[in-house]
């Protein structure tokens, strides 16, 4: 029987499948990290989250 995967491992695996979206979101934040405010990169984040949700379902 394979060892139980911890939820955090599943989470990490799913996130790893979205490196393109993650780098777009990361770049959006880092472009001007002195003036980050709430939902500054909302569209990029939603794209990243959608990708993660899709990857987590598989």
């Amino acid at each position: 029987m394979p060892a139980r995967t911890r939820p955090i491992d599943k989470f990490a695996q799913a996130v790893a499948k979205c490196s393109t979206e993650a780098s777009v979101y990361g770049k959006c934040i880092v472009a001007d990290y002195n003036s980050v405010h709430k939902d500054k990169c909302l569209t990029e984040f939603m794209r990243l989250k959608d990708c993660y949700m899709a990857a987590a379902k598989k």
Binding site: V15, A22, S23, Y25, K27, I29, Y33
Partner: peptide, 15 residues
Amino acid sequence: KRDVLLANEAIYRAL
């Protein structure tokens, strides 16, 4: 929160 963890992973890599 998961959202923050997700954002953190992306920002850590970019920065």
